[in-house]
C-alpha cells in the first residue's frame, strides 16, 4: 500500500492540480446556472480568451511574475465585461427556457472562438510559467513542477473564498435568496438585476482568470475551449447544478479520474470520463449534491 502510494504520489498530486484548475471553470458555470438558470456554453471560449491573454502578455518563453499578474488583470477586466454583456443578452430570453439560452451562448462561443483564431492564428501556443515558479521542487522524494503546486494553492484558496462568499456572507445570503424567490427579494428593496449581473460577471471572471492560470499547463490553441467546456459541464452535472461544494468535489473527482483512472485502467482511458458521468447519473439522477427539487425545475426544455 505504502509502495503503491509512493509510486503514484505524483499522479495523485497532479490529479488534484488538474481538478482544482477545472474547479475555477466549473464553479462559475455552476453558479451562473444556479442563480440565473443559464447554461453558459460560452464558458469554454472565455477560458480560451484568458489563455490567449496569457500567451500575448506572458509569452511562450521567459515571462516575469509581473507579466503574469498583468495577464490576470487583463483577463479579469475582459471576464467582467463579458459577464455583464452575456447577462444583458440572455436575460430577455429568461422565460424561453434553457435551450434557447444555451443556443445563444453557444452562438457567442463560436463567434468568440473564431475571432480568437482570426486574431492569433490556428497554431498551438504554449505559455511560460512565471519566473520563480519554473522548474521542479521535491515532494516526499519526488520531483514535481513548482507551478502545479502553485495552482493547487490558488485553487484551494479560491474554493474557500467562493464557499465563504456564497454560503456564509451577507452578499451570499442575498444571492441565495434571489434564487429562491426573486420577487420577495425585490420587494424588500434589493435590485435583483444587479445581483444577477454581479453573479454572472463573477462567474465569467473566474473563467477568464482560469484561462491565465491554466495557460502554463494547457497552453492556448483552437479547440481547447470545447475540451474545457465539456470537462466543466461534466463536473457541474456530477456535482449537482448550482452547488459550490458539488463543483469542488466533482472537480477533484474528475481530476483523479483523468489521472489515477488512466493509470489503473489504461485500456479504458477514453471511456472513463463519460463512463463515470453516466454511472453517477444512473445512481443519483440529480448529481452528487443535487436535490430532487432542482431536477424537477420547470421549463427545462425549449
Amino acid at each position: 500500500m505504502i509502495a503503491w502510494l509512493d509510486a503514484n504520489l505524483v499522479s495523485i498530486l497532479n490529479g488534484v492540480a488538474f481538478g482544482l484548475l477545472l474547479f475555477t471553470l466549473a464553479v462559475g458555470l455552476s453558479l451562473i446556472f444556479g442563480m440565473m438558470d443559464v447554461l453558459n456554453l460560452s464558458h469554454g471560449a472565455l477560458y480560451l480568451v484568458g489563455a490567449y491573454a496569457a500567451y500575448r502578455v506572458v509569452g511562450e518563453a521567459g515571462g516575469s511574475l509581473g507579466a503574469f499578474l498583468l495577464a490576470l488583470g487583463v483577463a479579469g477586466v475582459l471576464g467582467l465585461a463579458a459577464g455583464a454583456l452575456l447577462a444583458g443578452i440572455t436575460q430577455p430570453l429568461a422565460r424561453r427556457g434553457h435551450l434557447h439560452q444555451a443556443l445563444l451562448t453557444l452562438g457567442v462561443a463560436l463567434v468568440v472562438a473564431d475571432l480568437l483564431s482570426a486574431l492569433f492564428g490556428d497554431e498551438v501556443h504554449s505559455v511560460a510559467a512565471p519566473a520563480g515558479l519554473r522548474g521542479s521542487v521535491r515532494v516526499l522524494g519526488h520531483g514535481y513542477p513548482a507551478y502545479r503546486l502553485f495552482v493547487i494553492g490558488v485553487g484551494l484558496v479560491l474554493a474557500a473564498l467562493v464557499y465563504l462568499l456564497v454560503e456564509r456572507s451577507r452578499a451570499g445570503a442575498v444571492i441565495r435568496a434571489t434564487v429562491a424567490d426573486r420577487d420577495m427579494v425585490q420587494a424588500i428593496g434589493v435590485d435583483t438585476r444587479k445581483v444577477l449581473v454581479g453573479v454572472f460577471a463573477f462567474g465569467t471572471l473566474l473563467a477568464t482568470c482560469g484561462g491565465v492560470l491554466g495557460g502554463p499547463i494547457l497552453g492556448a490553441q483552437p479547440g481547447l475551449d470545447d475540451t474545457v467546456l465539456i470537462l466543466g459541464l461534466v463536473i457541474v452535472v456530477i456535482g449537482g447544478l448550482g452547488s459550490v461544494k458539488g463543483a469542488f468535489f466533482g472537480a477533484l473527482l474528475i481530476g483523479q479520474i483523468q489521472v489515477l483512472g488512466v493509470t489503473l485502467l489504461p485500456e479504458y482511458a477514453s471511456f472513463l470520463l463519460f463512463g463515470t458521468m453516466a454511472l453517477i447519473l444512473t445512481l443519483r439522477p440529480a448529481g452528487l449534491a443535487g436535490t430532487a427539487a432542482r431536477t424537477a425545475a420547470p421549463g427545462s426544455s425549449g
Binding site: A7, N14, F18, V259, V262
Partner: peptide, 20 residues
C-alpha cells in the same frame, strides 16, 4: 501504450508509467 486521441491534456500518468 496508446493514449486517447485528441483528449489527453495531461500525460503525467503515462510519463509516470514510463519512469517506472
Amino acid at each position: 501504450r496508446y493514449t486517447p486521441f485528441g483528449e489527453t491534456q495531461d500525460f503525467q500518468p503515462y510519463l509516470n508509467a514510463i519512469q517506472r
